[in-house]
């Protein structure tokens, strides 16, 4: 089985995010970069299918030079090779252009199945998977929590409000992974060591033959407003404190 898993490098959820003074993006200094957790579910599912049916897993990522580290992480988990699409014009590209780059790189691989994370935890757009399926003219099921492949039949389950729904489609197809699909494995040390020697093909926009024409762009990024400090209510006894609290809730917070 020829499997592709797309990954994106994102800041760690705990990282301190600072918005650049000009509002064009975030300060990248001091940030710990990790693989987007939803993409990790995709990689794990890809590896599981490979272990069951044989074949190989190719990791594809769009991102600056540092994204190579994330590709290596996926290779350490057990994927065979990587394609790193790295071009300044693609840095912070919109979903359409990212998907276009991915589609161009993946087309030649003629995969049986493609995995993407349901969304990336940095920009929360959640579009790349669907756009990629469209560009490759493949059926897709999004936000999948359970996957079964038999022959060329694919059954993919997703959670909807108050229920679960299972779709049936056939290979080749694209799946976007959600939490619950699996528990991503911890890379073994021989895996980490071998990953350093696995092939990663680096391609820029010219090599792919694409030009980036943004369909959407970030106008301005602003940090969330700082939280006001808490207030301590003083009073002689509990009754007085309660009275003050009620007054504040009514007049300042306007919740009662």
């Amino acid at each position: 089985m020829n499997i592709v898993a797309c990954v994106k490098q994102v800041p760690d959820t705990e990282a301190l995010i600072k918005v650049k003074a000009d509002g064009s993006g975030i300060e990248e200094g001091g940030i710990k970069w990790v693989m987007n957790p939803y993409d990790e579910f995709g990689v794990e599912e890809a590896l599981k299918l490979k272990e069951k049916f044989g074949g190989e897993v190719t990791i594809v990522s769009v991102g600056p030079a540092r994204a190579l580290e994330t590709i290596r992480t996926a290779l350490a988990m057990g994927a065979e090779k990587g394609i790193h699409i790295s071009d300044p014009s693609l840095d912070n590209a919109d979903a359409y252009n990212t998907a276009k780059a991915l589609a161009t790189a993946i087309k030649g691989l003629s995969p049986d199945i493609i995995f993407c994370g349901m969304r990336a935890i940095d920009d929360d757009a959640g579009q790349v998977g669907s756009v990629l399926a469209e560009l490759l003219d493949l059926p897709s099921v999004t936000v999948v929590t359970k996957l079964e492949v038999e022959g060329t039949t694919v059954k993919a389950t997703k959670a909807i409000e108050g229920a679960q729904v299972t779709y049936e489609t056939s290979l080749p197809c694209l799946i976007t992974a959600a939490k619950g699909l699996n528990e991503p494995r911890y890379a073994s040390l021989p895996g980490i060591m071998k990953a350093k020697k696995k092939p990663v093909d680096v391609k820029d926009a010219a090599a792919l033959g694409i030009t980036v024409e943004p369909k959407a762009k970030v106008v301005k990024m602003t940090p969330p407003p700082e939280r006001a400090p808490g207030k301590k209510i003083d009073g002689a006894d509990p009754a007085e404190k309660a009275a003050k609290l009620v007054k504040l809730l009514r007049e300042e917070a306007k919740v009662i």
């Binding site: 760690d12 705990e14 990282a15 301190l16 001091g30 710990k32 990790v34």
Partner: peptide
Amino acid sequence: ENNSNPWGIGAHL
């Protein structure tokens, strides 16, 4: 690995 503490609290804290 990510934050150099077992709880995963932001390393900057």
